[in-house]
C-alpha cells in the first residue's frame, strides 16, 4: 500500500472527529446514566395512569386534556379508581409532582426536549417560595 502512514493517520483523525461527542462526554464525566425520579408518595394520592403509561405518553395525555378543557369545556377526568379529577397540569399534576426541577426538568434535560408548557402555565412551588 502506498502512503500507508498518511492514510492510517487520516483514518484515525477521521474516527476521532466523528466520535468527538462520545469521548468528550466520557472525559468530562457529564453522563451519569438515566435520571432517577424521586416521587413523594406520602400523601397517598394515586397517579391518573400507570407509571409506564405516564413515562411514555404523558404528553399525549396532556394534549388530550388540553383539547377537552379548552375546546369541549369538559374539565373532569375519571381515573381507574373511579375518582374524578380536574384536568389541569398546574392544578392537578403539579399538586403532587410539585418540584419542576426534580420531576419534569431532569428527564427533559436528559432527553434534550424543551416543552414550552411553563411559558404560560405556572409552576406552583416556585410561586410559593417567592
Amino acid at each position: 500500500m502506498y502512503d500507508s502512514g498518511k492514510i492510517l493517520a487520516g483514518i484515525i483523525i477521521f474516527i476521532l472527529l466523528i466520535t468527538f461527542p462520545f469521548w468528550l462526554n466520557s472525559i468530562q464525566g457529564e453522563y451519569k446514566g438515566e435520571p432517577e425520579l424521586v416521587i413523594d408518595r406520602s400523601n397517598g394520592a394515586q397517579c391518573v395512569k400507570s407509571t409506564d403509561y405516564m413515562r411514555n405518553s404523558h404528553m399525549t395525555l396532556l394534549n388530550e386534556w388540553r383539547d377537552e378543557v379548552v375546546r369541549n369545556d369538559n374539565r373532569f377526568y375519571t381515573i381507574s379508581s373511579g375518582e374524578r379529577i380536574e384536568m389541569s397540569l398546574s392544578n392537578t399534576c403539579m399538586s403532587c409532582h410539585a418540584n419542576k426541577e426534580e420531576f419534569c426538568d431532569r428527564c427533559h434535560d436528559y432527553s434534550g426536549v424543551k416543552p414550552y408548557c411553563w411559558d404560560c402555565h405556572i409552576e406552583q412551588k416556585k410561586l410559593e417560595t417567592n
Binding site: 369545556d73 374539565r75 398546574s90 414550552y116 411559558d119 404560560c120 402555565h121 405556572i122 406552583q124 410561586l127
Partner: peptide, 25 residues
C-alpha cells in the same frame, strides 16, 4: 401578583375576555 391557578400568556399570542369560561364551569 400572579394568580397561580390561571396561566399567563406568552409573547406572540393574542388575548381577550373569554366571559370567564373557567369560572362558569
Amino acid at each position: 401578583n400572579i394568580t397561580k391557578n390561571f396561566p399567563t400568556r406568552t409573547k406572540g399570542v393574542v388575548e381577550k375576555c373569554t366571559f370567564c369560561d373557567e369560572r362558569l364551569a
